[in-house]
Design a protein around this nucleic acid. Structure first.
Lengths: 213, 213
DNA sequence: TGTTTAGATTAACGCCGTTCACTTTACACT
DNA sequence: AGTGTAAAGTGAACGGCGTTAATCTAAACA
């Protein structure tokens, strides 16, 4: 006789199955691939059964997106731990994690940031405590450590976020494999990110003859 | 008796009417609002008639997007003329035009850069001679004039483009009216852009005691 | 035992993109 | 003037979509 907990855990848990099916369909084939009937077929249930767990398709998608942001935050979490607090390396690692998530979950990423523009405002439960606060803490640490200049932390976070977000969205929207043909050679997102780092740090001002380190 | 030209211009020109209806539907209600039947109804024709001019919906959308990029380029064109060649003002004006287009054509802008990610590669006829080359020329001029530092122009263009593109997409996807709540006060895209300019120019490096101009 | 209820099902509605078979229009050619 | 041809437009229909309504099933509880 199995324990009650084991029973619960082994239970079909249709809701979870639906969410996973929806996430996979979204990640595999983009928004068009996610239909109630397709989700139901993958779960092995009739389409209308989904309505026992989600009010409608939009509610289902909203949950999937929330799960997506959790996975996204996982990438960022992994990027900060074990990196020296306040170091440029930590900041760089965050940016790289952002890019890595976008490239490794291309379709998903696209949906994450394109989809929740349609769903009007209701995504208030997402950002709190998530990636943004991670980013912000890293920036604040870097300022305190003198790694970057003093400024409004929120503004700098937004600036860096904008920078990395623009990089990946632009690449994803131009080249389906996040690649950019540039003066003959091909550059992938991480390479571009690396080349941009000098711009981000030193700016575009004409460089004085600085032969310092 | 009207001239031949006048006749041609006054002719119904169903194709143009279809394109305009599709563009308006897209700009007004986003992608979901654009259906063949809706376009047909607006033009005053049956849905199947559209197939005399466009192979299918995707082809229609593709043309609409191409028109959108033309309009977009118009914003950029307007930004460069009458601005001193190679000046920071010209670069700033380009960025502001980018933002202005995105804000004034919110739905349209979203579709422009979200949509042509789906349509696989086929958008090769778009960028040539368009906004990118404008941007590139302005950057090259600014380098030659010593306004910004010497570097690979393509890289700098991509850097700046990324910067402004990320700013608007991030704002559009977060706040439906391209507004950002920031330390209590609300910032609109142009304000943010202005605040970012110092970062772009001087970078995030710790500022030395520079009391120079 | 009978009753309730959560979960699943089938049927159906209206909208979608698209195809098909058909009619209408307009113009070129003998 | 009459005919042929091709373009432009039509309504019906197909399969797929999100969603609703009515119905069934089986376990839980009294």
């Amino acid at each position: 006789m199995t324990s009650r907990v084991a029973e619960l855990e082994r239970a079909p848990d249709t809701e979870t199955a639906i969410l996973e099916a929806a996430r996979d369909l979204l990640a595999e084939g983009g928004p068009d691939a996610l239909s109630m009937r397709a989700v139901a077929a993958r779960v092995g249930v009739s389409a209308t059964a989904i309505y026992n767990y989600f009010e409608n398709k939009q509610a289902l998608v909203k949950r999937v997106i929330a799960l997506g942001f959790e996975r996204f935050d996982g990438y960022l979490q992994e990027a900060v731990v074990d990196r020296p607090k306040g170091s440029r390396e930590q900041l760089r690692s965050l940016g790289e994690a952002y890019i890595r998530f976008a490239v490794e979950n291309r379709e998903y990423f696209r949906v994450l940031f394109a989809m929740h523009a349609d769903l009007p405002q209701q995504i208030e439960e997402l950002p709190e405590g998530g990636g943004y606060s991670l980013f912000r803490q890293a920036v604040a640490d870097a300022m305190e450590a003198g790694t970057i200049r003093q400024a409004d932390p929120d503004l700098v976070v937004l600036y860096l976020w904008t920078h990395v977000h623009g990089l990946v969205t632009l690449l994803l929207s131009c080249a389906p494999d996040a690649r950019c043909r540039h003066s003959g050679e091909e550059l992938k997102a991480p390479d571009l990110f690396e080349r941009f780092r000098d711009f981000v740090y030193h700016g575009l001002q004409p460089q004085p003859e600085r032969y310092e380190t």
